[in-house]
């Protein structure tokens, strides 16, 4: 782990009407860190993730990721930023039903302008690394939950992101598939991938993260270093 900062939130406040979902949150994530964000429902976890992913804008405060101020970008620049520097995995995988597993993953590279052949070659490398090569031509409907999440991880890694954001990555999986995904995230972090995981699952946080941030009522209630189990 280096000291280079990947994410820096400075007194970020987000209001929805009269309710403050985030209330002056400041947070720093350094390259190679694996940070888990936990807290009860409505504490602001998803809002925090949205701010870092550039999916939403703060009412006040600054959001800097990979050295760029996301709160000052327009929609197009945010999209381009996400394309090149962020990878996201979701609880419900969000794969396109009418693309094969391989094409779902290749799509992320094709958006950056890579040719179909180059994108598919890179996708196959990832399939190989994630152990799902034999599932490359299968459509999402025919994949198990664990396989879908591996495909989603492959898609997120396609453009070698500076930061991988995971929103309840094991929430829709059975325990075995959940274990596999946790192992995958640990492996990724161990080879230097910076991770931010938003979860309810304390086991996931303790297995995968090196630092735990606890939110309550839109504020950081506690921060602690973790020894991975």
């Amino acid at each position: 782990m280096t000291t280079e900062t990947v994410v820096r939130l400075d007194r970020v406040r987000k209001e929805y009407g009269e309710t403050a979902a985030l209330d002056g949150v400041s947070l720093t994530i350094r390259r190679g860190e694996a940070v888990a964000v936990m807290g009860p429902s409505g504490c602001g976890k998803s809002t925090l993730l949205n701010m870092i992913a550039g999916l939403d804008r703060p009412t006040s405060g600054e959001v800097t990721v990979h050295g760029e101020r996301l709160d000052a970008m327009n929609e197009t620049r945010l999209a381009l930023f996400r394309r090149h520097h962020l990878g996201m995995i979701f609880q419900f995988f969000n794969l396109l039903d009418d693309l094969s597993a391989l094409d779902n993953v290749a799509l992320a590279a094709q958006l950056t302008g890579s040719s179909a052949a180059t994108a598919r070659r890179r996708a196959l490398e990832l399939f190989d690394e994630l152990g799902i090569t034999d599932r490359r031509d299968v459509y999402p409907a025919a994949l198990s939950g664990g396989e879908r999440q591996r495909v989603a991880v492959a898609r997120a890694l396609m453009n070698r992101p500076a930061l991988l954001l995971a929103d309840e990555p094991t929430g829709a999986l059975d325990s075995r598939a959940g274990e596999q995904v946790m192992d995958l995230l640990i492996d990724l972090n161990q080879i230097g991938q910076t991770l931010l995981i938003v979860t309810h699952d304390a086991r996931l946080a303790h297995r995968c993260a090196s630092r735990l941030v606890e939110l309550a009522d839109g504020r950081i209630a506690a921060e602690s270093a973790l020894d991975r189990v």
Partner: peptide
Amino acid sequence: RRDLGMLKSIGMTPRQ
């Protein structure tokens, strides 16, 4: 809607 959200999340611009 869900597919569009996903495409935008992986970097599809509004123009795209």
